[in-house]
């Protein structure tokens, strides 16, 4: 997995690529929680180039979201591929996360 942290119109965007699994999710958690620790108001996570995610990857985003809620932060997921969306749906997390098609939609939402 590669993590490319970009800034788009003042919003931090995690552009992820490859496979998010038990081996790679600790690095992702570290980056995400560092940003959350600084109380980032909005964080986008671009899933467009993510080919695989396991339960440890999902847990990382749930942890990030739960840490952002107390200060009103928003974690927005973008470009989630169909197979990964199916996992969010099955886990009922599609109702918990804000999920958008692309970065423009995420800004509007």
């Amino acid at each position: 997995m590669k993590i490319d942290i970009q800034e788009h119109k003042g919003v931090k965007v995690f552009a992820l690529s490859g496979e998010i699994d038990m081996a790679s999710s600790p690095a992702l958690r570290s980056e995400l929680m560092a940003l959350v620790g600084r109380k980032a108001p909005v964080v986008f996570v671009d899933f467009k180039d993510v080919s695989y995610i396991d339960s440890s990857g999902i847990a990382t985003f749930v942890e990030g979201l739960k840490a952002m809620m107390p200060y009103g932060g928003r974690l927005k997921l973008l470009g989630v591929p169909a197979k990964i969306m199916e996992i969010f749906n099955f886990s009922k997390l599609d109702k918990v996360f804000e999920i958008y098609g692309n970065v423009e939609d995420a800004f509007k939402g």
Binding site: S55, I58, A59, V62, K66, I87, S91, K92
Partner: peptide
């Protein structure tokens, strides 16, 4: 419980489904 939102506890659901 899938209605409980917390990190972890999903792996067995993925196996069983």
């Amino acid at each position: 419980d899938l209605d409980e939102v917390r990190p972890g506890g999903l792996g067995m659901h993925f196996i069983r489904r």
